[in-house]
Design a protein around this nucleic acid. Structure first.
Lengths: 129, 129
DNA sequence: ATATGTACCATGTGTAGTAATGGTACATGG
DNA sequence: CCATGTACCATTACTACACATGGTACATAT
């Protein structure tokens, strides 16, 4: 795996990692079942903090691209290729875009939308008890 | 109109103004057709900047609570009482709350939701040309 | 001329959230 | 024992935005 991290890139480091691993899956450079380097290993190789790599791995597992098997290490998910093609963030963008559009049409100010959004994020945080 | 502005209140000054004027309408202290003090006048009385008062008036006019008639001054809107009861911000909060809830259930991170929201706000800005 | 709402230039302060870093500690199951 | 992923404590730098302030300028129509 030729992973190249650019520290001066505006794209966050963990996001670069996520993107490149998804690309590796889509380009068949790694296949389901393949073992990935451990968090500590990869952090050492790429000269990153373990937290940064851990964050990328956490997101990749949520997206069904990799599978963490505890002490045994991390592996490429069986459905990795399909799941790599699905972009949760783009869907979130589209969904929020619709809502924002509706509010804007109703005459709600951008500033008010931002404030309402901030409140919405904090409100629901306490809703799931 | 007994308007009291508390500078040490966490509620923004312009928001205090908006709320109190709406309350004055709902409490029949001012009725449709009544003239409101000019922006400069009110800013002077309350010891506020004209911009702050202007912001409140702008929002009140959008909500159909008051009517700006240019050089003639500002007046209470004919449908002020009905329009004062509608809270655009609460509706925005509820709408955004639903969207955020949906995204959260889908496993989207709060951080990712915020980023997607930020992009949604910037995207649509250029959409209406 | 006058006072109206409105629009533009700008600055300062405070808050909130992101990204990345460091260190320490834990349960897991070969 | 040991390396795994994971979770907690924390700090630093940065960005974006809200709020409020100040000054200046403009078209309006009596």
């Amino acid at each position: 795996m030729d992973i190249i991290i650019k520290i001066d890139d505006p794209v966050p480091l963990f996001a670069q990692l996520v993107a490149q691993i998804k690309q590796a899956v889509l380009g068949d450079k790694i296949a389901p079942g393949d073992a990935l380097p451990s968090i500590r290993q990869l952090a050492n190789d790429l000269d990153l903090n373990t937290k940064t790599v851990a964050k990328a791995y956490r997101l990749l597992e949520r997206d069904g691209v990799i599978e963490a098997k505890g002490y045994r290490g991390t592996f490429v998910h069986p459905d990795a290729k399909v799941n790599s093609a699905v972009d949760l963030n783009e869907w979130a963008l589209a969904t929020l875009g619709n809502t924002v559009g509706t509010l804007r049409e109703a005459g709600v100010t951008d500033s008010e939308i931002r404030i309402a959004f901030s409140r919405a994020m904090n409100n629901q945080k306490n809703k799931e008890s």
